[in-house]
């Protein structure tokens, strides 16, 4: 298939930008749909800098690459011909869904979530240069450390599906933030249900 020339040159620009930033930061986080998620900067250390009072470099926040619009929705896209980064930059398609939600005090995946994760698992398995970081979260209720453990359990649930699909364990990292980084600030069921989640954060080497 052929991409129309406009999209092609856009992708080229995106790739050049991505390449340049990859050279400067070693790894670049990609955010689906350009939601402005902070770039994961692996080069930061941030240890002594904080303690001794000097301002470290760890605070740098940059904006993730905007998702490339893959077309007008009618174009047929040949995933096989796209690089991993191109696929991740698409705002539509199955890989654009990168948040998995959970019930209260539960790490159980719904069948919809499993279907989404199977797609991610296949993608990761087929692209060795891709890594994913699974960030587990909980709602604010209960104790903070218990919620750290719960966020970890959720991330582990997601990880198991990805590995089952053939992703290798060194492609998948987990971290739990418990209730420390809520998506929604409210104190009701609507906010809580959005905060009980695992976010898939991709990097492409």
């Amino acid at each position: 298939m052929k991409l129309n020339p406009g999209i092609k040159s856009w992708l080229l620009v995106t790739l050049v930008v991505a390449f340049v930033s990859a050279c400067t930061t070693t790894q670049e986080e990609l955010s689906a749909g350009g939601d402005g998620a902070p770039v994961l900067d692996e080069s930061q250390s941030g240890s002594s800098a904080i303690a001794d009072g000097s301002s470290g470099s760890d605070g740098a926040e940059a904006t993730g690459l905007d998702g490339a619009d893959g077309g007008d929705g009618t174009a047929i896209v040949d995933y096989g011909a796209m690089t991993a980064m191109e696929q991740l930059n698409r705002t539509d398609g199955e890989l654009a869904d990168r948040t998995i939600y959970f019930e209260y005090d539960s790490a159980k995946l719904t069948s919809e979530s499993i279907a989404i994760l199977e797609t991610h698992g296949n993608f990761i398995a087929g692209n060795g240069e891709v890594k994913v970081r699974l960030e587990g979260h909980g709602d604010e209720r209960g104790s903070r450390e218990y919620n750290i453990a719960l966020g970890d359990r959720r991330a582990q649930s997601v990880r198991r599906v990805l590995l089952f699909q053939g992703a290798s364990s060194d492609q998948v990292e987990t971290v739990s933030y418990g209730e420390e980084k809520p998506m929604e600030m409210g104190h009701d069921d609507a906010a809580w249900s959005k905060n009980r989640r695992v976010e898939l954060i991709y990097t492409v080497n």
């Binding site: 941030g46 904080i50 303690a51 760890d58 903070r144 420390e180 980084k181």
Partner: peptide, 10 residues
């Protein structure tokens, strides 16, 4: 005691 951009806990 410590300032950070990322969570501090416990």
């Amino acid at each position: 005691v410590l300032e950070s951009d990322e969570p501090i806990m416990s």
